[in-house]
């Protein structure tokens, strides 16, 4: 967390701190409005992990590991797959067939919309965690090898 002090920031760091909330808000927007606007879970996860790459390059990996550990990210990725499976399993048990969102009519009056938003959330979690793990593992392997 040393790197986020104000004295240590250079031009690049100030600029990154300035645009970081906007990119995160944009990725949340394309995650939530996946049913009415272009975008969706995959794009939101990719943009969020691009933010993580930016933070890693400019501030260093310690800032990221203060919030996420690799273990936590693996749990998020697995949770994303399970969230995707949930509507499928519910509809399977209600005798409607796998991933038939009309079985979710106890959740809302628009069951298809509810199912789509739910699975997009799962896809977003999996994509963000997987891409972040691949990047962080790769980068830290190379950094440790050199030192």
């Amino acid at each position: 967390m040393q790197n986020l002090n104000k004295e240590n920031l250079n031009v690049l760091g100030m600029f990154a701190k300035l645009i970081l909330p906007f990119i995160v808000a944009f990725s949340l927007y394309i995650q939530v409005s996946g049913d009415s606007a272009p975008g969706g879970g995959f794009q939101a996860g990719a943009v969020l992990s691009a933010v993580l790459v930016m933070v890693d390059i400019i501030f260093g990996s310690e800032v990221i590991f203060a919030y996420f550990s690799i273990r936590k990210l693996i749990i998020y990725a697995s949770a994303g797959v399970i969230i995707y499976l949930l509507p499928g399993i519910i509809s399977l048990f209600l005798q409607k067939g796998f991933l038939n969102y009309f079985a979710l009519n106890f959740l809302s009056t628009e069951p298809q919309k509810a199912g789509i938003v739910l699975i997009e959330f799962g896809v977003g979690m999996t994509v963000f965690s997987s891409l972040s793990i691949i990047y962080l593992k790769f980068i830290n392997l190379l950094r440790n090898e050199k030192s």
Binding site: G34, D35, S36, A37, P38, G40, F42, A77, S78, G80, V81, Y84, L85, G88, F98, L99, Y101, E110, Q112, K113, G115, I116, I119, E120, G122, V123, T126, V127, S130, L131
Partner: peptide, 27 residues
């Protein structure tokens, strides 16, 4: 389906099983 986005309806509802496979590939 009742949503505005054609891509989202194909990707998540009509072809939901394929998208599940896609997610598993990344995992």
């Amino acid at each position: 389906i009742g949503i505005e986005s054609l891509v989202a309806s194909i990707l998540a509802s009509f072809r939901g099983f394929d998208t599940f496979g896609e997610t598993l590939v990344i995992y």
